[in-house]
Write a protein that binds this DNA or RNA. Structure first.
Length: 367
DNA sequence: CAAGCGTGGGA
DNA sequence: TTCCCAAGCTT
């Protein structure tokens, strides 16, 4: 690892900030430094691309313009607004933190990274980003960009997926932060990491900090950062039941409040490939899995949906979902975590998996 | 501290 | 198809 002297650090700061002043991106969350705006954007941007986030960010602020507005929201409304962005605990933690600040802290944000980190959903990165950008604290905000940029500049070969990475990079980056512009410094590093110093196809030669880029100078850019491989997703198979009445009402099932797609709504899912199962078998499994009981005599029609399946990839799971469509004569009683709603309901939070299933159903339905 | 937790895009 | 990547946090 390379250590810069004080003069080099000053030159680096001036070069980076000069470039940022001239070429920094004009993003919606950079219109001001309000902690609510900085925090919301940083949470949305976790593992999520800028282009994906922009429309969600704008819709969210139209819905809840202030932290106080958000604190008064229902969790169901928050999840509905978040639906499609993924990592849904982020949305639940946004609401929790809004409530803590509004109700327990009199609307006052902690103004240091250490204080911010006590709040739900705020870890090292978001704490550093909000503290530096909104409150001017000279602390690093170490995200994937910062890991990549400084691994190359300083030839840091610590695996950025290892437990030691946060400590090693924090020690390396902290001395480089300008006391007067920590927020701009951190944002400049992010812009550098998403332009010249990208993961794939970087343009190190034209980077404003090429002269400080040891990996580029030594021709070893492709060896930094060191990052161990992820595991392959595990394959899982399910069968979704489209349970409708003749007038187009369908059974919607809320997932458990913890775990994958927590609290979101889908059509009932049975484990395994149930394309060959009999109707009584399906209803038995439905009762066992979801406590939804229906007399088999009430089933008017039993149809398969399409010849194929819906596939959806999560971080650690690869799902294949088959669809069966059962038409019932009339609605039956449902447990508390299930509802009869129109097949194309618009009121509950649906994960992308459900939107894919609905699209597949609409394309392949038979009547 | 390894594993769980979403999604969309690009090569 | 498969893999990797994108402004991580929690348990």
């Amino acid at each position: 690892m390379i250590q810069w002297d004080a003069a080099t650090i000053k030159q680096f700061q001036d070069t980076l900030l000069g470039w940022y002043d001239a070429h920094g991106r004009a993003l919606p969350w950079r219109r001001d430094h309000a902690p609510y705006h900085v925090w919301l954007s940083e949470v949305m941007l976790q593992q999520t691309g800028v282009q994906t986030v922009i429309p969600y960010y704008e819709r969210w602020l139209a819905h809840w313009p202030t932290l106080t507005d958000l604190a008064a929201a229902d969790e169901a409304a928050v999840l509905k607004e978040w639906a499609g962005l993924g990592y849904y605990s982020r949305a639940r933690n946004l609401l929790k933190t809004a409530q803590i600040i509004t109700q327990e802290r009199g609307g006052q944000w902690p103004t240091t990274a250490a204080g911010l980190k006590q709040l739900p959903g705020i870890g090292d990165y978001v704490a550093g980003a909000v503290a530096s950008i909104a409150f001017g604290e000279p602390v690093p905000a170490i995200d994937g960009n910062a890991y990549r940029v400084f691994a190359r500049l300083l030839l840091i070969d610590t695996d950025i997926r290892s437990g030691a990475a946060q400590r090693v990079f924090r020690a390396a980056i902290t001395p480089l932060i300008p006391q007067d512009r920590p927020g701009d410094f951190n944002q400049a590093v992010m812009d550098l990491g998403s332009s010249y110093m990208t993961a794939k196809h970087p343009d190190s030669a034209h980077s404003p900090v090429a002269a400080f880029d040891a990996a580029y100078q030594q021709g070893v850019t492709d060896q930094y950062p060191v990052k161990s491989a992820k595991k392959k997703p595990v394959a899982k198979t399910y069968t979704a039941l489209v349970l409708t009445t003749p007038d187009g009402q369908a059974v919607w099932q809320q997932r458990p409040s913890r775990g994958l797609l927590a609290s979101l709504w889908t059509w009932p899912l049975l484990t395994g490939d149930q394309r060959a199962a009999t109707v009584p078998e399906l209803l038995t499994q439905l009762a066992a899995a979801h406590a939804i009981t229906m007399a088999s005599a009430a089933v008017l029609r039993d149809q398969s949906v399409g010849a194929g399946s819906v596939t959806h990839v999560f971080t650690h799971q690869h799902w294949t979902v088959y669809l069966r469509h059962l038409t019932l004569a009339a609605p039956t009683a449902l447990p508390a975590n299930a509802r009869w709603l129109p097949l194309a309901q618009q009121t509950l939070a649906e994960p992308t998996l459900q939107r894919k299933m609905a699209a597949y159903y609409n394309k392949n339905k038979t009547d």
